[in-house]
Simulated scan of single mutants.
Amino acid sequence: MTPDDRVERALDYRFRDRELFARALTHRSAGRHHNERLEFLGDAVLGYAVADRLYRARPLESEDVLSILRASLVRKESLAEIGARLGLGEAIRLGAGERNSGGHERPSILANALEALIGAVHMDGGEAAAVALVDRLFGDRFETASAAAAKDAKTRLQEHLQAQNMPLPVYAVVAAAGAAHKRVFTVHCRVEAFELEVSASGSSRRAAEIAAAEQALKVLEADHG
C-alpha cells in the first residue's frame, strides 16, 4: 500500500479526481502545481464546518466561548497533530531541500496539507463530503473541547514572542459600534518585532483581541513556519 493509499484509507474518502488529490499533497517547494490555493479553500471550509458543528453541539455556550473553542480546534498545532495521525508526512511531495531539512515533520506543512485536503474533498465531492470529513477528523472533540483548558490566540501569540525574547503585541480598540446589548468592537494588533499590523472584530474587547491575535499568528506561521 502506498502512502497515498494510506492517507485515503485514513480519510475514509476516495478521490475521483486523482490529480486534485496529488495537488493537495504537493508543497510549493516541489513545483508550481502546489497546494496553496486548495489550502486557502480548505481553511474557509474548515472554519465553517467547525463553527456549524460547535453551534449544534454546544447550544448553551456564548459567542465568545464558541469563538475560543473554534480557535483551539483549528489552530495549527491541532491540525498538525491530525495530519501526523493520517500519515501526511510520508505522503506529501516536498522539494529536496525541504525534505532534507525535516519538512515532512514540520507542523505548519502538515497543517497546511490537511487544510488543502479538506479543500480538495470539497472540490471533488462537494460541501457535504467536506463537512462529513471534518466531522470524522475531529470526532468527539466538538463535545469535549474545553474553553478553560484551551490556550487562546492571545496567550499563544504572547508565548511565541516571549520564547524569542521579543516585545509583546500591542492591542488598541479602534472602533465600537452598535446598541449596548449588541456591541461590536474592532481591535488593532501590532507586533513590532515583525512590523505586522492586523485588525479584527468581536462582540467584546476580549473576543476582538483574540480574533486579532489569531490573524497575527496565521500570518507569522505562514511567513515563518
Rank of each mutant, 00 (worst) to 15 (best):
D5E: 15
V7G: 13
Y13W: 14
F15I: 03
R18F: 13
E19C: 07
A22N: 06
R23L: 10
S29V: 09
A30R: 06
A30W: 06
H34T: 00
H34Q: 09
V45H: 05
G47H: 10
P59F: 14
L66R: 15
L69K: 05
R70K: 15
K76C: 09
I82E: 11
I82K: 14
R85F: 10
E90L: 10
A91G: 08
G95C: 07
R99W: 13
R99A: 13
G102T: 01
G103E: 02
E105C: 06
R106F: 00
A116I: 03
G119Y: 01
G119R: 00
M123A: 07
G125T: 03
A128G: 01
V131F: 05
A132H: 00
L133C: 07
L133R: 01
A147G: 08
A150F: 02
K151M: 09
K154P: 00
T155C: 04
T155A: 13
R156F: 00
E159C: 05
M166F: 06
M166T: 02
L168A: 13
L168P: 04
L168T: 08
L168Q: 14
A177Q: 12
A177F: 08
R183P: 06
F185H: 00
A193N: 07
S201H: 05
S203V: 12
R206F: 15
A211T: 04
Q215C: 07
A216F: 01
G225M: 04
